[in-house]
Amino acid sequence: MRPAMQFVDIANQFDCDITVSNDENNVDGKSIMQISMLAAACGTRLKIKAQGRDAEKAVKVLKELVEEKHFDEPTPSEQKNARI
């Protein structure tokens, strides 16, 4: 759950609405409950959407976190790809 924590911690730094979705569900990117449940249900392809003042920057940072850093403890079965 540490990746989810990092994700929401970063998301919460921005002054915009952030939505994360897999194919079925859209969730609030600032809620650890929702993010971790989304990952639990799927854990593969994530879409990050942001709306608001610093939306563009938020997406960039979060994409970097998910895509390039792969968080710091990727789970073996998880291969995360983020698309904007």
Binding site: M1, S36, M37, A40, A41, G43, T75, S77
Partner: peptide, 20 residues
């Protein structure tokens, strides 16, 4: 309800999170 959501996940790493 949230815990059972985790319990049902196939990935053991995730299903164990129910304990949290």
């Amino acid at each position: 309800e949230i815990a059972s959501h985790f319990t049902n996940a196939k990935d053991p790493y995730i299903s164990e999170r129910a304990a949290d």
